[in-house]
Design a protein around this nucleic acid. Structure first.
Length: 564
DNA sequence: TCTGGGGTCCTGAACCAT
DNA sequence: TCTGATGGTTCAGGACCC
């Protein structure tokens, strides 16, 4: 425990929702709910205005809509959030080399290591200045906690919310924590909290009084010792600037449970490919393949298989995932599938040897052709010859009995409803002002506040939608015309909240769409709330665009292309 | 009309090697 | 050679976090 409160924890307030409000003036001061919009979507973040209605993160979106019927419901735009986050993290790194990001909107900073604060007074000044700078550059507010340890700094920032700063003086930790709920402590969730409550322990003070032995008996060695130390306010964990990823995974929840075994297999293959894409993107290979299945009754099971060597070969991961799936009973239906890779290795090191060998073999004659992506894939195969090869050899005949797919579940065609449902849902959620091409917007009045992803594929997994919004190939099962942005194959898709530009009216964002129309609000960060107009979805003068900078010329992220 | 997605860490059982 | 203790690895699941 250090002698001064020089560990800073920054937590941006209602981050996703705040970014949306900053980029859409008509939403400022209004209830904004960011999350999945499908029938199984949940809330990622709600603005403070929405929280007053009882909306909170992890709540089913349907419930959030009932509680807050006039709230603007938007899909997350992670690319924009990431860019704003990068800007904020950059500001933190100006304070210290020791910055530990926890997520897009949270980080620890070791102020002492940066030489910017060695006592409480200086730390407070740094924190206040940081908050002001973040607001000036991004237009967003963040809360700051300062303490002598990470745990207390995080507790402090939580107490400081929203838009505040709290410093916990060294030496007062235990007294500060004592009256607080045990749920305040990191690592105490619903299960542990309930466990402790049944033992008559509800506050941190009671936790400290219980003693280490008692806590170890109740929740196990590791957790018990950790809990006891936290209850005393003791936390010696250093701020760590770089952390290696331990696993990479992708998962999708389906709007309608899957029954068809063939379809389930197809989805697993697709997930395996996406997982490998991410794996390669991070410069890793992995040794253990994990399949995750959540069944119709929400019971979740995982199956894993460890290869003899690390791989980033999509075929190897696909086959391993398929083998694991064969051991899982999916009768009754599957609501979620996931594929992950753990036991990560930094294959680029071995890759260097392979690359050096290849270059030596070429004798430098035509050495100007750098290693292309395809070559990288081939080289990687060479890294794990025993793993990939052995598994393939073991695989044997994958001879599923003919008609197995039909024999499973209620019968063929059952899951076709997914695709049909999507079409049906597209017509739902009529955009406000639909039919009135050229509807004059007069600001968000009562009853007009609802913003909805009418034009979205509500039936497909959120991740796929987001991926497609970023211009990636969807790879989804489904017919032509479903993939947004493919001109000439069908209607263009206009996700609610996405940025657009009109040849005549300029920049704006999609407020909703449906039945061949898209409603756009023409405004931008820094402008007054704008007017609403409705167009045909294939209006040639309307195009998707990059997000606008949140504040003036400060070009927060935004791909740099649309400075006003 | 329930309960996302992407992670980390821990525990306990089973198995194997020493 | 057998047996028990011990420790490492793998696997599955649970809890938690943002």
């Amino acid at each position: 425990m250090r002698s001064a409160p020089t560990i800073l924890h920054l937590d941006m307030d209602a981050f996703y929702a705040s970014v949306e409000q900053a980029s859409k003036p008509s939403l400022r001061g209004k209830a904004v709910i960011v999350g999945g919009l499908g029938p199984r979507g949940v809330v990622a973040t709600a603005s403070y205005e929405a929280r007053r209605f009882g909306v909170h993160s992890a709540m089913p979106m349907a419930q959030a809509r009932r509680l807050c019927p006039n709230g603007a419901c938007l899909i997350p735009r992670f690319s924009l959030y990431r860019e704003v986050s990068d800007t904020v993290m950059g500001m933190l790194r100006e304070l210290s080399p020791l910055v530990e990001p926890l997520s897009l909107d949270e980080a620890f900073v070791d102020l002492e290591a940066g030489g910017v604060a060695f006592d409480a007074e200086a730390a407070r000044a740094v924190g206040e200045r940081l908050r002001a700078d973040i607001t000036a550059v991004t237009g967003l507010s963040g809360s700051v906690g300062l303490a002598g340890s990470k745990m207390l700094a995080k507790v402090a920032s939580e107490e400081a919310k929203p838009a505040g700063l709290l410093l916990i003086e060294v030496g007062t930790e235990r007294a500060h924590l004592a009256p607080m709920s045990v749920r305040t402590l990191p690592g105490v969730g619903p299960a542990t909290g309930e466990h402790l409550r049944r033992a008559g322990i509800t506050t941190v003070g009671e936790l400290a009084e219980a003693g280490e032995d008692e806590l170890v008996r109740m929740v196990g060695r590791s957790h018990g010792v950790g809990l006891y130390r936290m209850a005393l306010g003791v936390d010696e964990r250093p701020v760590v600037a770089e952390r290696d990823a331990k696993s990479v995974s992708v998962e999708d929840t389906f709007d309608v449970d899957l029954h068809d075994r063939v379809r389930i297999r197809t989805e697993v293959q697709r997930l395996a490919d996406r997982c490998v894409e991410r794996l390669r993107g991070s410069g890793h290979s992995g040794r253990t393949i994990v399949l995750k299945v959540r069944r119709y009754d929400f019971s979740t099971l995982t199956r894993s298989e460890t290869l003899r060597g690390p791989t980033d070969d999509p075929a190897v991961v696909r086959e391993a995932a398929a083998r694991l799936l064969e051991a899982v009973d999916t009768t009754g239906g599957v609501r979620l599938l996931g594929v992950g890779v753990t036991g990560l290795a930094d294959y680029t090191q071995e890759d260097l040897f392979a690359f050096a060998d290849a270059m030596a073999a070429r004798a430098g004659a035509d050495g100007d052709a750098g290693p292309a992506a395809g070559e990288g894939a081939d080289r990687t195969d060479g890294v794990a010859p025993s793993g990939g090869g052995a598994v393939d050899a073991d695989r044997g005949q994958e001879s599923h009995a003919p008609g197995e797919g039909a024999g499973q579940g209620p019968g063929p065609g059952r899951d076709e409803g997914t695709g049909q449902g999507r079409g049906a849902r597209q017509g739902r959620g009529e955009a406000p002002g639909d039919g009135q091409v050229e509807a004059a917007g007069q600001g968000l009045g009562a009853g007009e506040g609802r913003v909805e992803a009418a034009g979205l594929d509500a039936g497909e997994p959120l991740a796929a939608r987001e991926g497609r919004a970023q211009g990636q190939e969807s790879g989804q099962v489904g017919g032509p015309g479903r993939s947004g942005g493919v001109e000439g194959l069908g209607e263009r898709s206009w996700p609610a909240g996405s940025d657009v530009r009109h040849a005549v009216y300029g920049p704006g964002w999609v407020q909703g769409s449906g039945v061949g129309r898209v409603t756009v609000r023409f405004e931008q960060p820094g402008s007054e709330p704008g007017r609403v107009r409705t167009f045909l979805v294939d209006d040639p003068e309307l195009e998707p665009s990059d997000p606008m900078p949140l504040v003036g010329d400060q070009a927060v992220g935004v791909g740099g292309s649309t400075a006003p």
